[in-house]
Design a protein around this nucleic acid. Structure first.
Length: 210
DNA sequence: CTACCGATTGACT
DNA sequence: GTCAATCGGTAGA
């Protein structure tokens, strides 16, 4: 792919060690990072503005809370790999955290489109920038992420990865917490993290307040 | 094999 | 705000 080295130099993938930590810390620190998608069609980059943590067997909302199945096997695998699953006929992307055998992951719920907006428009078939990647399944459609990427290594800078936030030092982030969206169980746990100043966050207005 | 259901979205009142 | 389309995964007969 043309320009591959230049892109991974400018948008260097986060290291495996980043993901090998407490998932709540990983979730919080993923807000502001860059989600990068590089295909033959072009480069797309978005700023992660909203995530949710799913905490292994002790979390009833986690897909792996009742053990390993064919669908959730990637969550039990190596940290820094993707867990991609389907819900209501749409794909959603997670980053796996913690050591092998501990099935925790971070759901990427929304990105602010930064580069490759034209390509995202084509894939999403909408002209509204705010709707391109606001929601976990919308961002997968905008970035052409499907079952192919279940188990994908997000640390080697090929096709799909997460890179550092170049603005991190310049601008402090306002990160808010709430209950997770769309899950009925464990509503007391505040495991959703989002940039409270971003207009690219999903959910009801009350869940976006500063 | 069948039945049920969901970490969603888009259309609509 | 409400609601249902839609289909793969899962559990159970």
């Amino acid at each position: 792919m043309v320009g591959g080295r230049e892109i991974t130099s400018r948008l260097a993938p986060l290291l495996r060690e980043f993901y090998l930590r407490d998932p709540v810390i990983v979730a919080r620190e993923l807000v502001g990072k860059r989600l990068v998608r590089h295909t033959s069609a072009g480069l797309c980059v978005g700023r992660i503005v909203e995530v949710e943590a799913y905490l292994s067997r002790r979390d009833p909302a986690c897909h792996a809370s009742r053990g390993m199945t064919r669908r959730n096997a990637a969550m039990f695998g190596v940290a820094g790999h993707a867990y991609v699953y389907m819900i209501h006929s749409r794909w959603c992307l997670n980053a796996v955290t913690e050591p092998e055998g501990v099935p925790s992951a971070i759901l990427i719920r929304a990105i602010e489109p930064l580069e490759g907006l034209e390509l995202m428009h084509q894939r999403r078939r909408t002209d509204i920038v705010r709707d391109l990647a606001r929601g976990p399944a919308r961002l997968c459609e905008a970035l052409a992420i499907d079952r192919t990427y279940n188990g994908w290594d997000l640390t080697d800078g090929r096709e799909l990865w997460i890179a550092d936030d170049p603005d991190a030092a310049a601008r402090p982030l306002r990160i808010a917490r709430s209950a997770r969206i769309g899950v009925s169980s464990a509503q007391r746990r505040l495991l959703r993290f989002f940039d409270s100043e971003s207009r690219f966050v999903s959910g009801a207005r009350s869940l976006r307040a500063r």
